[in-house]
């Protein structure tokens, strides 16, 4: 199972630190939501397309990001058409689309490992409230590792039901699946504690 949306490359966006990219994204988001004039709106939207090109990402990847949103955007456009008129609708929809593309740009050009390191650093100020940055990062990585495992357990639970002649209805398979996952969780946490992580 392949996870992650990172696209390898060597553009200046790939080399920039995740923190810088996140800060830029935040500024961009604020600018987009504040700007009302047509010229600036078009300029900001064009900017994200240009940076997309500079980052070496393809148009196919761009449309892959917008495709799941197309119905939402169309519905929103139709709705705004009644409420705020054509330009209002245009403004709202374009703003949302540009934001999503900008955020995808950051995701596509940032390795998960780097994002994780940034996250560990970001957690540091919370250390005084009892959050251990390394533990928080460890839990995130651990969760990622368990995702394929959970889908395997789920598949086995459904298969077991089918083997007994029951249908493909996933709901009655949910209970044995969750119980088995909880048993595994206890075993895993014992293993983690035995290796010296945490206290409980």
């Amino acid at each position: 199972m392949s996870v992650g949306v990172y696209q390898p490359g060597n553009s200046c966006f790939h080399r920039a630190t995740p923190g810088l990219k996140l800060a830029a994204l935040t500024i961009y988001a604020v600018a987009l939501s504040v700007v009302e004039q047509f010229v600036f709106l078009m300029g900001l939207s064009a900017l994200v397309l240009v940076t997309w090109q500079i980052a070496g990402l393809t148009w196919a990847q761009l449309s892959a990001n917008l495709k799941p949103l197309i119905w939402i955007l169309l519905a929103l456009f139709g709705f705004q058409l009644f409420v705020a008129g054509f330009w209002g609708a245009f403004d709202t929809v374009l703003t949302l689309a540009a934001l999503v593309v900008a955020a995808a740009l950051v995701s596509h050009t940032t390795r998960t490992d780097d994002m994780l390191d940034t996250l560990t650093a970001t957690f540091s100020p919370f250390a005084r409230f009892g959050v251990k940055p390394e533990d928080a990062a460890f839990v995130l990585v651990f969760t990622v590792r368990l995702v394929p495992f959970v889908s395997i357990v789920g598949r086995e639970a459904i298969d077991a039901r089918r083997a007994r002649g029951a249908g493909r209805n996933p709901v009655p398979a949910l209970v044995p699946m969750v119980i088995r996952l909880m048993r595994e969780t206890d075993a895993l946490s014992e293993a983690v504690v035995a290796r010296g992580f945490g206290r409980t």
Binding site: V3, G4, V5, Y6, L22, L25, A29, N65, P68, L96, L99, V100, V101, A103, A104, V106, S107, T110, T112, M115, L116, L119, L140, V144, V147
Partner: peptide, 17 residues
Amino acid sequence: LGFPLLSGGRGGLGVFF
């Protein structure tokens, strides 16, 4: 972090906007 775990295979920063 960018893992496409939401239904429909969505993930990344975009979904939070």
